[in-house]
Design a protein around this nucleic acid. Structure first.
Lengths: 150, 150
DNA sequence: TGCTTTTTGCTGCCTAAGCAGCTATATTCC
DNA sequence: GGAATATAGCTGCTTAGGCAGCAAAAAGCA
């Protein structure tokens, strides 16, 4: 089996055409727009990402969150500090494993939930507004393959 | 003219399938891999991004860099501090406009250049290795359209 | 010319991620 | 049981980005 030609080459490399530049730009546009949408709710997009995952896993520990978000425990500690300070999340020591911290969304956090999703959806739609459904499905499928690899 | 159906909907929203999640994941994989590749050269991927743009524009000012990178002047000041401290970049006051700081790549910075591009290319190829050329072109084209919008 | 506005870069303050080192607790193995 | 090892979370250090406020310099205008 022959090795296929590499897709990127040193000679043909153009920074602005690279996958790295493009996904970075798309991401920062999405995050900036989402931060604007979420500001009135007293939440940043990074905090929302953590809150939503915590909401999906009632009673989960900080380390579980770290694993599913591919993040560091030190970073997570401080993120939970901020969310707790804002009253959206509650910490409690696990009874079974007293090293572990269990997380729960507070009422205030849960109340936020239905307000946020429409704003997330609106930001996404605004960004992909020039694509057809077929094109978005294609784009999503290709990105998923890249993510799934290894 | 009728408004097309929105592509994302509140009911159908699944975080892990959203464009935001996917581009964020691809980006962080690329950056992590690039940081590993660049570490032996004493450079981070964020520093490389600035260095490469500065190299493309000899004698450019900090503000010009900020504009083309869509970044803040405060952030850029400190980034240049780090690059200068490592000896990859040199600051000098402009003669024409004494507010402005002109940037120049040092010999050490320029020497790094040919060492980095192959590593960037390798990281990109590793990440898209399961795609055909046609698929990568398609993906790149769709992302460019999203970026170009507004 | 002199006054106002704009631009440029710097600084302080905040959020945020990653890494290394630490303590307390759990688990494993002898 | 008791020592070695692993795990959970916290803290300090660094890099990094955004925002607001600052002073110096430049540009615009009466």
């Amino acid at each position: 089996m022959s090795t296929p030609e590499p897709l990127y080459t040193v000679d043909g490399y153009v920074a602005g055409d690279s996958l790295g530049f493009l996904v970075g730009t798309v991401r920062s546009r999405l995050i900036n727009a989402l931060d604007v949408e979420l500001q009135p709710l007293g939440l940043t997009s990074a905090q929302w990402l953590v809150l939503t995952r915590a909401a999906d896993r009632p009673g989960c520990t900080a380390t579980e969150l770290c694993r599913c978000m591919n993040t560091d425990t030190g970073s997570m500690t401080r993120m939970i500090d901020r969310l707790e300070e804002k009253g959206f999340v509650r910490r409690s020591r696990s009874q079974k494993d007293r090293r572990a911290v269990c997380l729960e969304i507070t009422e205030a956090g849960r109340a936020l939930y239905p307000l946020i999703i429409p704003r997330v959806v609106a930001v996404l739609n605004e960004r992909v507004k020039s694509l057809s459904r077929e094109e978005l499905d294609l784009l999503t499928g290709l990105l998923k393959r890249i993510v799934a690899d290894e």
